[in-house]
Amino acid sequence: MEDHRKGAPALDEARLRQQAIGVKLRQMFDEVVNETVPDEFLEILRKADKAGGKD
């Protein structure tokens, strides 16, 4: 990390940008993951459960 001056600064820059995009990508996904799950989901599952092992 110390000597990117003599290496390829453009490459470092590209890597930095890719990392930034990666962070945002996970943030975008995690935002939805962290939302409260609508009750509907559990209700549907509960009903299916009551129907027993029908399938």
Partner: peptide, 20 residues
């Protein structure tokens, strides 16, 4: 079924995110 369901429930947030 109970074991299955418990695990399925933990996956709902991830399924929602992927679907989105």
């Amino acid at each position: 079924d109970t074991t299955f369901k418990r695990e399925l429930v933990t996956l709902i947030p991830h399924l929602r995110a992927f679907a989105r």
